[in-house]
Each structure stands twice: as C-alpha cells, then as structure tokens.
Design a protein around this nucleic acid. Structure first.
Lengths: 144, 144
DNA sequence: GTATGTGCAAATCATTTGCATTCTC
DNA sequence: GAGAATGCAAATGATTTGCACATAC
C-alpha cells in the first residue's frame, strides 16, 4: 500500500483545506486498481462496495488530485475524461489509432531529459508529462 | 496559402464521401489563423464573416479533420476541446501549469526518433504526437 | 464557531441526433 | 437518382451549482 493518502493529507494541510473520510475513501479506491478510471466507473465501484459517495464529491475532488499530482488526465474519450493515478507508479504513454480509437500503452524514458531542460529554461517546477503518439493501427492502416 | 484543401479533397475522395462548400469554408477559416481554436469560437468567426455554417456541421466535420491529420486535439479546457491545425505547420508541444492552467508552447524534435521506433515495434503508421509537460509556473511554484 | 465539505436535485452547456430538405457525385 | 450533408430544434449526458445540513479544524 502506497502513501498516497499521506501525500494528499499533506497537500490539504498546506492549502488550508479540510480532509474528510469521503475523500480518503475515493483516493483509496482510485489506487486500489491499476487501471485508468473515469468518474462514473469509479462511482459505481464505490457503490458496489456499499460506500455512499456522491458523484459531485468525486467531481469536486478531482481538481485537487490533479493539482497534488496524484492523478492526471489520461485521455478524453466517449464524452468524458479518463484519468490515471501517477503517484508511485511507472510512467507510461499512449499510442492511439486515429481511425478505430484503440489505445496502446508503452514505456518511455527519453522525455525525462527534456523535462529538466524545460524546467531550467522556463523556470518551471516540472512534475510530469503526458505523451500521446497517434497514427493508424495495423488493421486500420491497410484500409485507409 | 497551403494546400490543406487539396489534402482534404483527396481524403474525402479516398473515403468515398462528398465534399461541400461548407466544409471548405470551415477548413479555410481554421487555417486562416495560427492559433488554437474551439468549435464555438470558430462558429463565431464564421458568423462574423457572414458565412452561414451551423455548429453541427462543424462538429460533424471534426472527426474527418482528425482522421485526415489536418488538425489534432490540443487540450480540453473550460469544458470543451481546443484544436490546432497541424498540417504544414511546425510541430509544438505544451507546458501547462497545474495550478493556474497557463499553457506555454515549445518546440521539440526529440520525439520524432521515438515515433520511428514505435512504428516498427507495433506495426503502426505513425502520423504525429502530442506532448504535454506539466508542473508549476514560476508564480505558482512559489505559493504552493 | 466558522468555513468547508457532502448529498440531493436542478441547472448548464458541449456535443449529438432525428428529420425534412438540399446538394454532390 | 441515391446516398450524403446541412440546418434546425430537440435530446443526451457529463459536469457544475444552489442549498440545507453535517462536520473538520
């Protein structure tokens, strides 16, 4: 079990906000799976486990999770966002087919060097990145 | 003036679809500006120029523009997508502040090599990529 | 004690869709 | 002439918001 809860508590404290059991329940559920998630799916997972958390509570928590660096937007598909938790997990990128929408994951280290350069050049505190490569998958490239 | 119109005509022809003056008007307007655009803003730009194009026509055209590689999603913000035209323009990536949401653009060539490797490894026809680096801007990193 | 968070129901707003009409090929 | 595309109005569905109550600090 990671200490994402600790990271979140620290973040909340620094911001002068308040933590709640609902928020910790949501975070635990997010990190309980290795997969991407979306709000509706997360809500249903919680419901299945008899946790009474409302959707607005999830929606209201997400900006904090993004800002704290615990999660990031993975992609926007089927009309809603899909997120992935990034804290304590190996980074991966996406290879997407422009025709059928299929998404493949792959690992990439090359961009880390770039992060350092950018941090210096623009005086940013760089915390992560998202790389999406697109094109046509083996099936779709034949037809196109 | 680029030949994005030609590229689109070719794409439409290959797919056995039909081209229309509305579509070409939209494409010309997209490429008339160097900036990102979103559907509403594009619609208003067209309206200002007395072009009677409906929003659904724009929405229905976008998947084709994506698939043809003329445009790509730049980011999803303020509840809607922002697109950028990529055909015939130098590629750029985004550096985004997690706190204030500010977006900076920068150039990057390093990822092109990776594209080749991925194309080979997964048998994809790779046409482009989108790289977003995030963190805190000079102002926000002080406060956080 | 006070300001923040929660749940509910209602509101918002981007995007999609049904349909009758028009237009491309 | 058949199948697509358009515009309009209505529907959809994710996300947000107002509000009254509960609760963290």
């Amino acid at each position: 079990m990671g200490n994402e809860i600790e990271v979140f508590r620290e973040f909340i404290r620094k911001k002068g906000l308040r933590n709640t059991p609902e928020r910790e329940t949501i975070i635990k559920e997010i990190f309980a799976s290795h997969d991407h998630f979306d709000v509706d799916e997360l809500y249903l997972r919680l419901k299945t486990k008899k946790k009474k958390i409302s959707k607005p509570s999830i929606y209201r928590l997400i900006p904090h999770l993004l800002e704290s660096g615990l999660i990031q937007e993975a992609y926007h598909e089927d009309g809603h966002f899909h997120y992935e938790h990034i804290y304590g997990h190996e980074h991966h990128c996406h290879l997407r087919c422009l025709k059928c929408g299929k998404v493949l994951e792959f690992k990439e280290q090359r961009v880390e060097k770039l992060e350092g350069k950018l941090a210096e050049k623009y005086d940013y505190l760089v915390t992560g990145h998202k790389l999406e490569v697109f094109g046509y998958c083996p099936t779709c490239k034949v037809i196109t």
